[in-house]
Amino acid sequence: MAYSDKVLDHYKNPRNVGSLAKDDPNVGTGLVGAPECGDVMKLQMKINPETEVIEDAKFKTFGCGSAIASSSLATEWIKGKTLEEALTIKNTEIVKELNLPPVKIHCSVLAEDAIKAAIADYKGKQSVSTAEGATVASATAD
């Protein structure tokens, strides 16, 4: 199969490869896929809790070149966006940007899922930390 220049570019020079501290309350981690279906994607974002702006993003992907390119592109796109804006990113936009053929559409779906999973993880952490804050507060009130 021939790859588009954009897929090749992301494959050769992937943007934002790496990991963020997953225990940081301001970091959301999305780990999606399954080795059984070939692909595993880890996408992380560091969020400014005041503004909800994604200040940094990193990924690691086990999958085909299109999956690597999709996740690389996703990290590029989400950086600087608010969580709300990031949630509107659709896999079809990734397909269009990277010129993915039909058999590779699921690789872009994975990237969209990874963004959503990372945001859900962050939000989960935030509600836990506020809940913890509340317990602490009530404890001191006693």
């Binding site: 992937p14 490869v17 595993v40 880890k42 992907t61 086990f62």
Partner: peptide, 15 residues
Amino acid sequence: ELSPLYEMAKEGVDV
């Protein structure tokens, strides 16, 4: 270096 599975394996997670 790009593989989340490699990273997990190095951290001792049984992938």
